[in-house]
Computed example of a mutant assay.
Amino acid sequence: MVNIEDFIKRLEVILDYYGLNASSFADNIGVQRSSLSHLLSGRNKPSLDFILKILEVYPEVDLYWILNGKGSFPKVSVNQEISSRSSSSVHSANQEVVPPGIASTDKAIVSKINTNIQDATTYGSDKESEIDKIVIFYKDGTFKSYHP
Rank of each mutant, 00 (worst) to 15 (best):
I4W: 01
D6K: 10
D6A: 08
D6T: 03
F7P: 02
F7H: 08
I8W: 04
I8M: 03
K9G: 01
R10F: 00
V13S: 09
A22K: 05
S23F: 03
F25L: 04
A26S: 02
A26F: 00
D27P: 00
I29M: 06
G30R: 04
Q32C: 05
R33N: 09
H38C: 02
L39A: 02
L40I: 02
L40K: 07
S41F: 00
K45M: 07
L48E: 13
D49F: 08
F50H: 06
F50E: 06
K53P: 03
I54D: 08
V57K: 14
Y58I: 08
Y58R: 08
P59G: 05
V61I: 12
Y64K: 15
Y64I: 07
I66Q: 10
L67N: 06
L67K: 10
L67R: 12
K70W: 05
K70N: 13
K70E: 15
K70D: 11
S77V: 06
S77F: 11
E81H: 10
E81P: 02
E81S: 15
S83D: 11
R85D: 15
S89M: 12
S89C: 11
S92P: 03
A93F: 14
E96K: 15
V98D: 03
P100D: 10
P100G: 09
I102Q: 06
A103I: 11
T105V: 09
K107Q: 09
K107R: 12
A108F: 09
I109C: 08
V110I: 15
I113C: 07
N114I: 06
T115S: 15
N116R: 13
N116S: 09
I117W: 06
A120K: 05
T121L: 05
T122Y: 00
Y123W: 02
G124F: 14
S125I: 07
D126K: 13
E128S: 10
I131W: 01
K133I: 09
I134G: 05
I134L: 12
I136T: 10
K139N: 11
G141R: 05
F143D: 02
K144F: 01
H147R: 05
H147N: 06
